[in-house]
Design a protein around this nucleic acid. Structure first.
Lengths: 330, 330
DNA sequence: CTGAAAGCGCTAACAT
DNA sequence: ATGTTAGCGCTTTCAG
């Protein structure tokens, strides 16, 4: 004798079908969303029955026949790396609003990638958003069953999907601004040196500085944080950066630069500081400097567009580029 | 005629069993991890076959018979609410190291809770970690099939699991310190007023201040951020907080308080500022103030202990308390 | 348009 | 200890 409902007391499709007085197949079709052949009347009945029972399809059973899982993997290095959590927050929200779930994967090292292979959950996601710079495009395709892989770590392959933020123009503009200010030398405060994104960024600064006849006095790599840059500055003599543009690849590090000037009482040099990320700290009372940023909403929209089926199946461009912008200090 | 492998070319348990020359059942048992009855020899063979094939069990099929899903829901309001991302980062890592996956759920409002009901994925997680203060303990139990629900939002029910950070003693100590400094009045800078946690925190400050004969000149609620507090301070006259302890419920807001004093050239008052969260900003060059914090590792260990089956099945205490600590400015 | 039946890949009885 | 069998809940042929 079979119970009307499953072990854990959740109604199944069978229950819905019975209540609606139709077969399981019809119930399935009625609830499928995709325009399957069902008579309007029966469809109505099924939907009512489902509501009455509070029926929610079991995604595990669904995924067994379907190839869809409703899961989207978001792969990052350290969550703390994220320069702007707002971006992330909005992304999560956007994913949820599409009825998908976010599977969060945190990678420490290249070794962790192998671990992903032994995890079939990750393997079977509907889409993967790669923020971690530990993953190369070619490797990414071997990690997931889906073709819906969007590289967001600055790397991209010939026909893979990616959203890349082009910072070159913004950086060039920042360098021009330094020149306008009459500065003929600069110093670079970079972030994690092992990041290819970061390397490229620093390269841009160096190249454009040379183009503008600005002497790069030096480059140092910190870890994006206020503290790391602060520690560096602490070791510098007070006049180390006189008439020197300080290009930082994060606003936090620019804050440290600014505090360095303030601590040494050379407030007239503050305008020489350039941050990165366009966070609120670039325009507070205490901290105020030029910065570089991009449109977060555009970024998220691009990602969502790419992983929407209609799009990725088509011949649309699979490589989106977002131009970063220079925000001069007001 | 059946293909040796499934549609998507992934080896199944059947393939492993065949290669090892055993039945599916034996293969299943050999790979189960849990000490099921299998001869050492066959087990060895199965494992070899699995490796040779690069077999990874399909968690969707598994969950259909099992009641386990390998998924842990982490429910937050806004990810940006998290005062300390390091905590979060470590938690994610800990979850992964247990071979579980993190399903990230972001709640905007009470209405979003209803949405969770229509999401059977969330419904079927093995455990749920509730950081969002939108969820009451009684509601939580209706959202998940599992009993493994850990309240981390300061709320807890009689026999439910929770990890609560007890801040009362630390706050009392902070207030005593203010008294020691000879301060007879104080001002409270709170965070999101709607948060019960926050309300309790402010209450502690008010109560202990009264106990210590310290007059609470006022309380204002910002949103934990530097900017929000900064905006408040901007409107205050320079002498508004002379000889007044400023108790902030976040280090970011304490930074704003400190900048207020600095901007007004009253540096001798800096010692009167009290932050919260024990972030690095309480002890950098520019920012230096007393703060309150707790042991993040203990917190995470508590959570993991609670959701480990051995523990939650037993009669162990299901309500963990972590004492926050006062860190006086050095 | 509809329903019966056959699986998806796995685990858990139930007999050996 | 092992293999056979029967599902888990769903979608999808395939006949009607």
């Amino acid at each position: 004798m079979k119970a009307a409902q499953s072990k854990n007391d959740l109604p199944t499709l069978d229950d819905v079908a019975k209540l609606a007085g139709v077969s399981k197949a019809v119930a399935s079709r009625a609830l499928s969303g995709k325009n399957r052949p069902v008579s309007k009347m029966k469809k109505q009945k099924v939907i009512e029955a489902a509501n009455a029972l509070g029926y929610v399809a079991n995604p595990f059973a669904k995924s067994l026949t379907n190839q869809e899982t409703g899961l989207i993997a978001v792969v990052v290095n350290h969550i703390t790396d994220l320069s702007d959590l707002t971006l992330f927050d909005n992304l999560l929200q956007a994913i949820q609003s599409q009825g998908k779930q976010t599977l969060f994967v945190r990678l420490n090292s290249k070794e962790d990638i192998e671990g992903m292979r032994h995890n079939s959950f990750i393997h079977r996601v509907d889409a993967a958003l790669i923020f971690s710079d530990l993953i190369e495009p070619e490797v990414a395709t071997t990690l997931f069953l889906t073709q819906n892989i969007v590289m967001l770590n600055g790397k991209s392959s010939a026909n893979g999907m990616s959203v890349v933020v082009d910072e070159s123009i913004a950086i060039k503009t920042a360098v021009s601004r330094a020149k306008q200010l009459g500065l003929n030398q600069c110093f670079l405060i970079g972030g994690r040196q092992s990041s290819p994104n970061e390397a490229r960024r620093v390269q841009y600064y160096e190249d454009y500085a040379e183009d503008a006849d600005i002497n790069v006095k030096g480059t140092v790599f910190c870890d994006y944080s206020y503290t790391s840059a602060s520690e560096f500055f602490k070791l510098q003599p007070a006049d180390a950066f006189t008439d020197t543009a300080i290009f930082c690849t994060s606003d936090s590090m620019a804050m440290a630069a600014l505090d360095f000037f303030k601590n040494n009482g050379i407030n007239h040099q503050l305008k020489n500081i350039f941050g990165f990320d366009n966070t609120i700290f670039s325009r507070t009372d205490s901290y105020r400097f030029s910065t570089i940023g991009y449109d977060k909403n555009k970024f998220i929209d691009s990602i969502l567009a790419l992983i929407s089926e209609e799009y990725s199946d088509s011949d649309n461009d699979k490589k989106h580029i977002i131009e970063a912008e220079f925000f001069p200090v007001s």
